[in-house]
């Protein structure tokens, strides 16, 4: 089962990334709409009067749902990945400084971390999203700045234990400076939990990007993102449920894949800690 999870996660993520990268090759133009009346609300697996095949049907403007999904993957996956990168950068920096140089800076940074951890992330996201004009860039910054705390806590713990290990004390004894010890000896050894947290965080970030876009505070239409695709399908739930269902299924698959991959990496690196965990990070 262990390898099954990793394989499933890797394959699904690879397929999603490939579909996003080669979107123009695997799907038509997501914005094309002709003869709205004749081509709208076509159910999945049907062809329109132009002979064009729509694997996932069409929406109320006659746009191909599959094409919108694939082009939306570019935004959703891209924004998610960039947001996680921002989180990792901030989290590693804060955790390393707080863990290595204790004293007032450490106390202040840890306090800041605990403070941010105690707030509902979505409320913070909404507050930030309300003050600036919504855009994909803003979503990356806002998600990145609200997602670094778990990583900072993990890095802080790792750095503190590693700093007391003989090989680190040896490096200090040989005259290595603080910054060098941290960068060359401690941080490389603290990267495993960061990788796991990043994988779990990726699923979370993709989900939250979709949430913000769903509320109209993230990526703006007509640029397709999975969140605004779900939102656009909301009004046609009765006669065309596939418009909202398709991006949701894609979203769940990708988040499950990222979560399983994270679980598998953690189990491989640290057999002592099986299964579970990560429950609190949701939404």
């Amino acid at each position: 089962m262990r390898d099954g999870r990793a394989a499933f996660g890797a394959v699904v993520l690879a397929l999603a990334v490939a579909a996003a990268l080669f979107a123009p090759l695997v799907a038509g133009d997501p914005l094309v709409q002709r003869d709205i009346v004749a081509t709208r609300f076509l159910p999945p697996l049907s062809a329109d009067l132009h002979g064009e095949f729509h694997p996932l049907g069409t929406d109320r403007f006659g746009r191909d749902v599959w094409a919108r999904l694939v082009f939306g993957a570019r935004i959703s996956l891209g924004v998610g990945a960039l947001a996680v990168l921002v989180s990792v950068a901030v989290g590693v920096l804060v955790g390393a400084i707080a863990g290595y140089w204790r004293g007032w800076a450490g106390v202040l940074l840890l306090g800041l971390t605990d403070f941010s951890l105690a707030l509902p992330r979505v409320v913070l996201l909404l507050l930030l999203a309300s003050l600036w004009q919504p855009s994909a860039g803003l979503v990356v910054v806002v998600l990145g700045l609200t997602g670094w705390m778990t990583i900072a806590r993990l890095v802080h713990g790792e750095v503190r234990t590693l700093a007391a290990r003989p090989f680190v004390e040896g490096a200090i004894g040989l005259g290595a400076g603080g910054r060098r010890v941290l960068a060359r000896h401690i941080l490389p050894n603290a990267l495993t939990p960061v990788t796991v947290a990043a994988a779990l965080g990726l699923g979370n970030a993709i989900m939250l990007e979709a949430g913000l876009s769903f509320l109209g505070l993230g990526v703006q239409p007509p640029t397709p993102s999975w969140g605004n695709l779900i939102a656009s399908g909301r009004d046609t739930l009765v006669n065309a449920p596939w418009v909202a269902a398709a991006p949701g299924v894609a979203l769940v698959l990708v988040v499950v894949a990222a979560t399983l991959l994270g679980d598998a990496i953690r189990d491989r690196m640290d057999p002592g800690q099986r299964g579970g965990g990560g429950g609190a990070a949701g939404q």
Binding site: A244, V255, T259
Partner: peptide, 11 residues
């Protein structure tokens, strides 16, 4: 765990 609440709600 991976289901977005707003989507599950819609379904």
């Amino acid at each position: 765990f991976a289901l977005p609440g707003y989507w599950l709600g819609l379904m």
